[in-house]
Design a protein around this nucleic acid. Sequence first.
DNA 1: CTTAATGCAAAGGCTTTGCAGAGAC
DNA 2: GTCTCTGCAAAGCCTTTGCATTAAG
Lengths: 137, 137
Amino acid sequence: MYSELQAAELLRRAEIVPTPQRVEITCLLMGQRAHMSAEELYRLVNSGGRRVSKATVYNTLGLMSKKGIIREVIADPARVFYDPNTQPHHHFFDVTTGKLQDIDADMVQVSGLPPLPEGATLDGVEVIVRYKSAKAE
Amino acid sequence: MYSELQAAELLRRAEIVPTPQRVEITCLLMGQRAHMSAEELYRLVNSGGRRVSKATVYNTLGLMSKKGIIREVIADPARVFYDPNTQPHHHFFDVTTGKLQDIDADMVQVSGLPPLPEGATLDGVEVIVRYKSAKAE
DNA sequence: CTTAATGCAAAGGCTTTGCAGAGAC
DNA sequence: GTCTCTGCAAAGCCTTTGCATTAAG
């Protein structure tokens, strides 16, 4: 579990004013092992008594990802996942269930990437292993 | 350029009835070096005199990707790209312009991936190198 | 008082769906 | 006539935007 104090501290360090809503969102996101989409998080926050608007959820996630304390993962065409793990690492994506899972970067080697175009800034290298799980077709 | 005859042949081999609309879509997609989204393709098809509905474009792309003659690439949260290149390969994604570009698989080595969960079927390994290009912020 | 954060609802893209009409055999 | 494909429009989902309200210093 992730305490409100930890969350507030994290936000403060990222120069984000730790309002109650932001702290709440941060707690839930950080406390979760699975990755969540904004929509899921929005529902989760609001199921827990607290009332936070959609705009604020999207806003907060956008802010946090701009400040680098969480990371956007684009694996599912239907939504963006937010990943509390900012260490370099990669992902398993279960196409059947829509679940996203971490793969430690230590284990995976990517080599031979061509250089970026002139003047470009690297934004990240993401490896996504997509698979279908047993159940459904 | 990609001829209608080639397109029809490709579709037929994939057991897709080569209707005029599907042939048209296939021609445009295959003839293009850049990757396109369904929406772009829809606009492109309809700018060329021919009238094809949105439903048909989405339908055709879905069919083709299910049959394995094109490939979906998920790199941009806002849309799915369709890639006529079905050889294993990877992608550069220019965050600034939204352009997607191929990276030959030959050059890139990915090693050390952990095994899939029990009973899972690999659906693909995708490496996406995201970068910001010179211009905009 | 001034500035920033929040909430609401509406708008916006991309994609999917339902169903009627057209076409092929 | 039957089966499939097509087209249109409406609906859906996630996300963004605009603007009035509220909170903070």
